[in-house]
């Protein structure tokens, strides 16, 4: 089959349509999300393997005297699931150029993030597990602490996007920043669900 030259097929007087706007922020966020998922997967993989090895020797996984209550982890899960719904509200609002609702929704997501961090701090105080008390403690803190750091990064991302939205950078014709922040937030919540099951539920 003979390829046809563009010059031969498009009349000279027609100007080419502008190329589609690249969604670089969204692509970059997706790649960063993939890396974040692998980071947590690596940690959880090491956690579960170590836990299985300890249990196989007949020992208990959690050091004696350490109790993980279920109320706080479950409330944290509910908080983060709720934040997903609020993030969906933000994405929908920016699509309708409804800025007040977008600001409220992004602000609420940040409040949910703060609530999650506060609940985690409370849970850790209830667990009363000193990092230097037992060789398993650093592993537990590595998983919980890394997820906290990821939540912090996601809140920073949402905060920056909220400020940029406030400055008028995003609207119905360009929602990429809000999409990107929402994607990273969803990944953060999904990762908590893995931590919730692996650390708090299975204990």
């Amino acid at each position: 089959m003979t390829a046809i030259s563009v010059r031969e097929t498009i009349p000279a007087q027609l100007t080419a349509a502008p190329p589609a706007r690249p969604r670089l922020l969204l692509i970059g966020t997706a790649l960063a999300s993939a890396a974040t998922i692998m980071l947590m997967s690596g940690l959880l993989g090491i956690y579960l393997k170590t836990r299985a090895d300890v249990i196989a020797t007949g020992e208990q996984w959690l050091p004696s005297g350490v109790v993980i209550p279920l109320t706080q982890p479950n409330m944290m899960a509910v908080t983060l699931v709720l934040s997903i719904l609020i993030m969906v509200w933000a994405v929908g609002s920016i699509g309708r150029d409804d800025r007040p609702n977008t600001y409220i929704a992004l602000g609420l997501v940040l409040v949910m993030g703060v609530a999650y961090i506060a609940q985690t701090a409370f849970l850790l105080s209830l667990m009363d597990l000193g990092a230097a008390d037992d060789s398993k403690a650093p592993l537990i803190y590595a998983v919980i602490g890394t997820h906290l750091a990821i939540v912090g990064a996601a809140m920073l991302y949402v905060g920056v996007i909220a400020l940029r939205t406030l400055a008028g950078n995003y609207g119905s014709k360009d929602r990429e920043g809000v999409y990107g922040a929402a994607l990273f937030w969803y990944v953060t919540v999904a990762l908590y669900m893995a931590v919730w099951y692996a650390v708090y539920i299975t204990k």
Partner: peptide, 21 residues
């Protein structure tokens, strides 16, 4: 992007393990 974060996970753990002896 898929592999190096696993090394990073090891480093996080090594940091805490080393720090707490």
């Amino acid at each position: 992007l898929l592999a190096l974060p696993v090394l990073l996970a090891e480093l996080v753990l090594a940091y805490l393990d080393t720090k707490y002896g």
